[in-house]
Design a protein around this nucleic acid. Structure first.
Length: 468
RNA sequence: GGCGAGUUGGCGGAGUGGUGACGCAGCGGAUUGCAAAUCCGUGUACACGAGUUCGAUUCUCGUACUCGCCUCCA
């Protein structure tokens, strides 16, 4: 199979991907801060890296890939929710309530991401379970002269790391010039960032050599990646908004702690999601969660298809029209190949080669369209599955559910009346029945042998009540 | 101000130094009692200017515009 090429943010080039160890390909993706339901933008990297995960497993073997995605469960917003609940009279300590909030958010997240047809990573570490490793790494950074304690904080000294800024293409001087960084008197350089900060008595905190406190945002990923994947690994990913400062800071921490290791070889960043051409934001009123869409009846698989129809390094515009088109196409595809119990063979070589070219998911979809028209349903299905589409199980339910709707009696009755009228050549009655069905949002499909139907967007069988 | 990405037909969206994919919509046809659904076919585009080249949408430079990041953010 063709070699995999990926765009490496570190070099700004498409490079041939060669794993450090082909029997253990290691990938780390920055996961969510678990303060609330995941919004639609949160889902994009999850889907993108799910495709990469599938591709890597296809090429290197299902057991030869280790995929890690963390949960950030140290956060002010989580604390705020916990405090509000405590004030409202919830039982338990604040720490219990913090944990409870994280737990429920994680459960939602996993449900929502599963609905999109994404596989769970091999490891899903929580920051709060790696505090000891973070403290150790911070101590090491201090010992090596890359960090310093000041007023209960520990700060990373950016001037101690010459490569600082390499990933995002900026120098420390450039950054200071236009910087909007917090001015803190204990910082030696305004760009120095927090590794550890003090916690108040009320808020969650952990004992450390610098007093009771909590970790800064970036150290968790360095510590967890090191623990689970080692000092050197293959791929590190996330949204491109994380490129600076989060990933830049991770590199500084990890490369200074392990100077000869190099940290991640490949950095992959997905572009941001937009909604109807605009950035998703609460103030524009176009902010919504994955769950909001699922509750509106937009299938997870449809969301996934829309995501995959745009290359991951381009801004992806979510529109209702795209969702509509995706649904129509997936319906045809599932009708064609969705019911095969055990698809045989493997994915088509052209689909594989599209994906090996820096995850050209749109190119892969184009090949699928060709296979749909002229190809073999088995190869088509296997190819779609490599993209995480047409999978059996949960992501198939939306389609299978509409094939056998519960409220079919009235519709079946109306169709029977129409069929009878057609046999009698009573087309006035037949057309009346058809109009009635259409007005109830039923899509009527005639073929030589029989008439089938499915619910349309405005399906409302109660409009057929008059037939009783 | 600094860094980066982008500008392809009515819409979405790939790709390429030399006949400009694909999907949706439109149009034509098959099918139908007529339709719908389905299937087949089909037109129009590479922001602007200059350069390199036998030849550029594709490479280089410039201009305009759009977007993202630089602050929590996927």
């Amino acid at each position: 199979m063709t070699e995999i090429k990926l765009h490496n943010t570190k070099t700004r080039k498409k490079e041939v991907f060669t794993p450090i160890d082909a029997e253990n390909v290691r990938m780390y993706l920055c996961g969510p801060t678990v303060y609330d339901r995941a919004h639609l933008g949160n889902a994009r990297p999850v889907v993108v890296f799910d495709v990469l995960n599938r591709l890597l497993r296809y090429k290197y073997g299902p057991d030869n890939v280790t995929y890690v995605r963390n949960f950030t469960d140290v956060d002010d917003k989580i604390n705020a929710t916990a405090m509000a609940r405590k004030e409202a009279g919830a039982a338990g300590t604040l720490e219990d309530l913090v944990r409870e909030r994280s737990d429920e958010t994680i459960a939602w997240y996993l449900e929502d991401m599963a609905a999109l047809g994404t596989d769970e990573p091999d490891h899903m570490p929580r920051a709060t379970e790696y505090i000891a490793q973070m403290v150790t790494m911070i101590e090491d950074l201090i010992a090596k002269g890359h960090a310093y304690a000041a007023e209960g904080h520990v700060l990373f000294a950016v001037e101690s790391y010459k490569e600082y800024g390499a990933l995002s293409g900026r120098s420390v001087d450039d950054m200071i010039a236009g910087a909007r960084v917090e001015v803190a008197p204990y910082k030696k350089n305004p760009m120095d960032f927090v590794l550890w900060k003090p916690s108040t008595d009320e808020l969650p905190g952990w004992d450390s050599p610098w007093g009771r406190g909590r970790p800064g945002w970036h150290i968790e990923c360095s510590a967890m990646a090191d623990e689970l994947l080692g000092a050197s690994f293959d791929i590190h990913g996330g949204g491109n908004d994380l490129q600076f400062p989060h990933h830049e800071n991770e590199i500084a921490q990890s490369c200074c702690a392990n100077p000869d290791a190099g940290f991640a070889n490949f950095w992959l960043h997905n572009e941001m999601l937009q909604v109807e051409g605009k950035k998703m934001s609460k103030s524009l009123g176009n902010f919504f969660t994955v769950r909001d869409l699922l509750d509106q009846g937009i299938a997870g698989e449809v969301i996934r298809f829309v995501f995959l129809s745009t290359h991951y390094r381009k801004p992806m515009d979510w529109t209702e029209e795209k969702a509509r088109e995706a649904k129509a196409e997936l319906e045809r595809w599932r009708a064609f190949a969705g019911s095969i119990e055990e698809p045989m063979g493997g994915p088509h070589a052209e689909v594989v080669s599209a994906l090996t070219d820096d995850l050209n998911t749109h190119g892969a979809i184009t090949v699928l369209r060709k296979l749909y028209k002229s190809g073999d349903a088995h190869v088509f299905r296997k190819s779609a599955e490599l993209l995480g589409l047409l999978l059996p199980g949960e992501t198939a339910e939306w389609f299978e559910g509409q094939a056998e709707p519960e409220t079919s009696d009235l519709v079946e009755y109306a169709i029977a009346l129409r069929t009878e009228a057609k046999l009698q050549k009573d087309f006035a009655t037949a057309d009346k029945m058809r109009d009635l069905l259409i007005s109830a949002g039923v899509v009527v499909k005639d073929s030589k042998e029989s008439t089938t139907w499915e619910p349309g967007p405005d399906f409302d069988p109660s409009k057929l009540e008059g037939l009783k």
